[in-house]
Amino acid sequence: MKDFSRELSFKTSRSSGAGGQNVNKVETAVTVLWKVGASDFFNDDEKALIQEKLKNRINAEGYLFLTVSESRTQLMNKNKAIEKIIDIVNKSLVIPQKRTVTKPSKAQKQKRLDTKKKLSDKKENRRFKF
């Protein structure tokens, strides 16, 4: 896991929801911005992978952004935003393992055919016979 929190920039805004008068006068919502292309922590291949997997979250200027307004304090929202953006980027760097194609074994094939035969016999016995 790479911690690139030094490259993040923050914006604050008024958040909605619970908080009473505090909501109307204190900017507690935090938007975290990160310029993917200008990062020194990742090489070009990793940047391309991040941009491909997170293309829906990256705007036209190349910024990955995330807004958090879960808590009533700006500091807690900032910490949550840092955690979330680092988690999102690290998950996007994971390359899924390719599935190796395998054939079913003879025992598995035989078991499937035996089960089909038993079910067929059970249904055959239910039929009305003259």
Score class of each variant (00 low, 15 high):
residue 13 S to I: 04
residue 75 L to K: 14
residue 61 E to S: 15
residue 40 D to S: 11
residue 103 K to L: 04
residue 76 M to Q: 15
residue 33 L to I: 04
residue 92 S to G: 06
residue 12 T to S: 13
residue 114 D to W: 00
residue 38 A to K: 15
residue 120 S to D: 08
residue 112 R to E: 11
residue 64 L to H: 04
residue 46 E to R: 01
residue 82 I to W: 04
residue 27 E to S: 14
residue 112 R to I: 05
residue 34 W to G: 06
residue 13 S to E: 11
residue 25 K to P: 01
residue 96 P to T: 07
residue 14 R to K: 14
residue 65 F to N: 15
residue 101 V to W: 09
residue 95 I to W: 01
residue 60 A to H: 10
residue 53 K to M: 06
residue 48 A to T: 12
residue 4 F to P: 02
residue 48 A to N: 11
residue 17 G to V: 05
residue 20 G to I: 01
residue 107 A to N: 08
residue 115 T to H: 09
residue 16 S to Q: 10
residue 52 E to D: 14
residue 46 E to Q: 15
residue 68 V to Y: 03
residue 86 I to F: 07
residue 90 N to L: 00
residue 102 T to N: 11
residue 110 Q to W: 04
residue 99 R to D: 00
residue 121 D to M: 09
residue 118 K to F: 07
residue 89 V to P: 01
residue 21 Q to H: 14
residue 110 Q to T: 08
residue 10 F to N: 10
residue 99 R to M: 02
residue 79 N to H: 08
residue 111 K to M: 06
residue 98 K to I: 10
residue 69 S to N: 15
residue 29 A to R: 10
residue 15 S to T: 04
residue 113 L to W: 00
residue 2 K to V: 08
residue 1 M to P: 10
residue 47 K to H: 12
residue 73 T to P: 05
residue 57 R to L: 14
residue 41 F to R: 13
residue 115 T to F: 04
residue 60 A to M: 05
residue 42 F to Y: 13
residue 14 R to Y: 09
residue 66 L to I: 08
residue 93 L to S: 05
residue 24 N to Q: 14
residue 2 K to Q: 05
residue 34 W to S: 08
residue 123 K to G: 02
residue 31 T to R: 09
residue 87 D to G: 03
residue 99 R to Q: 09
residue 13 S to W: 00
residue 73 T to L: 07
residue 79 N to I: 05
residue 2 K to L: 02
residue 57 R to E: 11
residue 128 F to K: 15
residue 98 K to C: 01
residue 48 A to D: 14
residue 105 S to Y: 02
residue 125 N to M: 13
residue 98 K to L: 07
residue 22 N to C: 07
residue 81 A to R: 00
residue 119 L to S: 11
residue 107 A to Q: 10
residue 14 R to M: 04
residue 43 N to V: 03
residue 35 K to S: 10
residue 66 L to E: 14
residue 117 K to W: 01
residue 91 K to H: 13
residue 124 E to A: 13
residue 57 R to A: 11
residue 10 F to W: 09
residue 60 A to I: 00
residue 109 K to N: 12
residue 5 S to H: 08
residue 10 F to A: 08
